[in-house]
């Protein structure tokens, strides 16, 4: 589990994770917000279906891919969290049309 150090006081941002209402903080990347919620895995791989989460947090590993506002294969570590965003677990391959 990742937790916020006590000196961090940033405004709350509400968003949806797999349809459930959850909260992050201003200044979070989507990947950081998921880790703060205890979500270490954010997708299932395209090859074996294994659970996977972000590894590098700097845009090189592509393991934090999620569906954001209906668009798949988004790098969660590079997308700033925004109020009202919809974030979904990415299951396997990117689906046609998303």
């Amino acid at each position: 589990m990742f937790r916020r150090l006590h000196e961090v006081a940033r405004p709350v941002l509400r968003f949806r994770l797999d349809g459930e209402p959850v909260e992050g903080r201003e200044g979070d990347s989507v990947a950081a917000a998921l880790l703060a919620l205890g979500r270490d895995a954010c997708r299932e791989t395209a090859v074996s279906g294994a659970a996977r989460g972000g590894y590098c947090m700097m845009g090189v590993c592509f393991d934090c891919l999620v569906v954001i506002d209906g668009t798949g294969n988004r790098q969660a570590c590079l997308v700033p969290l925004r109020e009202g965003m919809s974030v979904e677990t990415q299951h396997g391959r990117r689906e046609p049309g998303r």
Binding site: L5, M57, M58
Partner: peptide
């Protein structure tokens, strides 16, 4: 490095 990025940018620690 990923953990360090989370510490710097979001104040998050494992």
């Amino acid at each position: 490095g990923a953990a360090q990025t989370l510490l710097k940018a979001q104040g998050l620690a494992a």
